[in-house]
Design a protein around this nucleic acid. Structure first.
Length: 351
DNA sequence: AATTCGGGGTA
DNA sequence: TACCCAGAATT
């Protein structure tokens, strides 16, 4: 029978070849949840060390729920998608306050929690509670679309339910190992390029392999064009202390620290930069020098940074803060105490 | 339904 | 370069 073939072979393969990963040492809801949040759009190899540090600092959901937000961001520094870190604390507090420290055991309740969507809910239910719920991520869509030769555009969110139903149909009695096995197969064998079909436990049933059309799947129709922005990074130094500010709690790199930064509208004007510092922070500055900065690539845009080295005008006394919640003057050795995204860490080396 | 969220590995 | 990654929230 087709269903038993896929399930049996996948489970057997997974139990034999699975990678030893820190979040596979136990299947507590807390550690499953923590690892799944970190693994969103982030590769396993990147997550491992972050996960270990995080779990050591916060062994239980109760530790995390009472954590200092700045400490969380410092631990998350460099991992990206920083709203995940903010949602992590919000979720931990809700679990402790509203659920007595125990994660809900149904999809509807789980998806009400910040940072938990359909994939993560399914992962928690299947991996922690061994419930028969699908957990469809990019790996699973690639595996299933190849196995069934599905000409379904995975870029359209509405098509995800097609894959969830396929997974349900293939699922057997061990959802925990089955869902993880599906993802493991996608991550290590059924890869986007150089797929290792000779090692595949379900090669005999795979339609794409039979038709030699493996690389036609998954169908993905959406092009992202990265926009390039010329950015001015303001390096304002007074008495060997640097001016830094915490970024707003929405938008790009929210809640992390950074230097003041603004788009260079008139590429040759210092006046615009001085006006920006006056408007945003109430600081009257002089731009003394412009130096080459760094390039940084985000998901949907590219920053070309130039460094605008400034001093305060003597007449300026008031350090007003308007748009930003927090500002600080710190010396270079203190920078490491604050969480900075990688774009600004590149600047550290230049100043 | 489309866009916005990082950063690194890989070919 | 361009693509992809154990996606979710917002517009």
């Amino acid at each position: 029978m087709q269903t038993e073939y896929f399930y049996t072979n996948l489970i057997q393969w997974y139990k034999k070849v699975q990678r030893q990963l820190p979040w596979r040492e136990s299947y507590q809801p807390y550690t499953v949840w923590l690892s799944e949040i970190m693994l969103q759009q982030t590769q396993v190899i990147t997550v491992v060390d972050y996960y270990k540090r995080f779990l050591k600092a916060y062994p239980t959901i109760f530790d995390l729920s009472s954590a200092d937000e700045d400490d969380i961001f410092k631990l998350w520094e460099g991992l990206g998608y920083y709203s995940r870190a903010r949602n992590l604390i919000r979720c931990a507090k809700l679990i402790v306050e509203d659920y007595n420290g125990d994660f809900p055991k149904n999809k509807k309740e789980l998806m009400k929690l910040p940072g938990i969507g359909p994939y993560t809910a399914g992962a928690i239910l299947s991996i922690a509670y061994n419930q028969k719920e699908p957990a469809v991520d990019g790996n699973v869509m690639r595996v299933i679309s190849r196995y069934r030769a599905l000409n379904v555009n995975i870029s359209e969110v509405k098509n995800k339910k097609i894959f969830e139903e396929e997974v349900q149909g293939l699922m057997g009695g061990e959802p925990r190992d089955f869902n993880q096995g599906l993802m493991e197969l996608g991550a290590t064998v059924c890869t986007p390029k150089n797929a290792k079909c000779t090692q595949c436990p379900v090669q005999e049933g795979c339609h794409a392999f039979a038709n030699q059309t493996v690389y036609q799947y998954p169908v993905k129709l959406k092009k992202i064009k990265k926009q390039t922005k010329e950015m001015a990074v303001i390096i304002l130094e007074v008495d060997q202390t640097l001016f830094i500010t915490k970024r707003p709690n929405t938008g790009l790199m929210s809640n992390l620290w950074g230097f003041p930064v603004t788009e260079r509208i008139n590429l040759h004007s210092y006046v615009d930069i001085e006006a920006y510092m006056e408007e945003a922070f109430g600081l009257k500055v002089n731009v003394n020098q412009v130096e080459e900065g760094a390039k940084h690539i985000f998901t949907h845009l590219i920053w070309h940074m130039k460094l605008y080295k400034c001093t305060l005008k003597e007449s300026s006394q008031a350090f007003k803060k308007i748009d930003y919640p927090e500002i600080l003057w710190v010396n270079r050795s203190e920078l490491e105490n604050y969480a900075f995204p990688t774009a600004f860490k590149k600047v550290f080396k230049l100043i």
